[in-house]
């Protein structure tokens, strides 16, 4: 497998006074050039930590990368020095974070904050960078860029600030854009606008995207590939249609069952599945979802299932499960 990003066996721990948090466990996947990957999973499933860890953005300590490799542009990001990583961050990989209200520096002008990465990575003069910042504001659909550049974040609405964050993230034409729940804090109409903007930018700039979200509706509308995480592991992954039509992991199935109508692009938060989230301090020896899984087999409690191609599914559809979900569902007389 070879793509723009190859993650292999990524494992992240947090050493806290209360014990070691097994936040990300043996995560492996590959992202193709121009692909949009949607990462879903409930709170605490390791979605944010796994991307932050790749770029050295988790606090160390308490964070610690316990294993794995992340190949990007022919180099293993996990072995790079902090200085080398800085060249990658913001230059080749752009980040957009969840809360646009707090992610911009309140005391610097928006123009300055957009110009910073351009000066840093492209070596432009401040004047040229300002010019570029104006272009970028225009690109992300903010009118009157010259005037807006001189304003401060508090003079922008939430949706506008997220557009500014996106302008910052794509300022240096990155090969990869990582967005960590970028629309969660926004209202529905603004969410839709931001999604439209990102689709548009992606088409124009030809970058790959990792889109982390709680929202299955967003995944359906944006992603080529869906990756479902649970307890710091990938439990299922595959082309977006396959995942929606033919889920093979009981957790994915539970998430989808909560959507009002199959395939309908309704914006909805992830369904709360009954039971406690897994204890990341003392992970069970078996499948972490087993205690909440109505289809769990005795083996699920004993052994962690590997992520393997799902039997009889489309290529690239991988699942980690000891049980055969379609057969069990058919037995229950429940087609969906």
């Amino acid at each position: 497998m070879s793509g723009i990003l190859d993650v292999s066996g990524l494992t992240v721990r947090f050493d806290t006074p209360a014990g070691t948090v097994h936040a990300v466990n043996d995560v492996s996947y590959s992202l193709a050039d121009g692909e949009t990957l949607g990462v879903v999973g409930e709170s605490g499933s390791g979605k944010s930590v796994h991307v932050l860890a790749m770029l050295g953005l988790i606090a160390r300590p308490p964070g610690r990368i316990a294993g794995g490799s992340v190949t990007f542009g022919g180099r293993d990001l996990l072995t790079l020095s902090e200085a080398e990583l800085r060249d990658v961050r913001g230059g080749q990989i752009g980040f957009v974070f969840q809360d646009p209200m707090t992610s911009l520096n309140p005391v610097l002008t928006v123009g300055r904050q957009i110009a910073e990465p351009v000066i840093r990575h492209r070596g432009l003069s401040p004047r040229q960078a300002w010019q570029r910042a104006a272009e970028l504001l225009d690109l992300v659909g903010i009118a009157d860029p010259e005037r807006r550049l001189r304003q401060y974040p508090h003079q922008f609405s939430g949706g506008m600030r997220q557009r500014v964050m996106i302008a910052i993230a794509v300022a240096c034409n990155p090969k990869l854009l990582i967005a960590d729940e970028p629309t969660t804090a926004l209202d529905v109409t603004v969410q839709a606008q931001i999604l439209g903007l990102v689709r548009d930018l992606k088409a124009r700039m030809g970058m790959s995207v990792i889109w982390i979200t709680h929202d299955m509706g967003v995944v359906a509308g944006l992603a080529d590939t869906v990756q479902v995480m649970y307890g710091g592991r990938i439990v299922e992954r595959g082309p977006v249609r396959a995942i929606f039509k033919d889920p093979r992991n009981a957790y994915t199935w539970g998430l989808l069952r909560a959507l009002p109508d199959h395939g309908q692009r309704v914006q909805r938060r992830l369904h709360q599945i009954e039971g406690q989230p897994p204890d990341l301090y003392a992970p069970p020896k078996g499948d972490p979802f087993a205690p909440r899984n109505p289809f769990a087999t005795p083996r699920c409690f004993e052994q962690i299932p590997p992520l393997v191609p799902a039997a009889g599914a489309v290529p690239g559809h991988l699942v980690a499960a000891w049980y055969d979900l379609p057969r069990l569902l058919a037995q229950r007389g429940d087609a969906r």
Partner: peptide, 29 residues
Amino acid sequence: REDYVRTARAKGLLPRTVMVWHIARNALI
């Protein structure tokens, strides 16, 4: 702990830029 400091780091800015313009500038208020 502020999100904008993480943003500044995610932009790949040099430590002294982050220190002066994103941390100290706000901490001095």
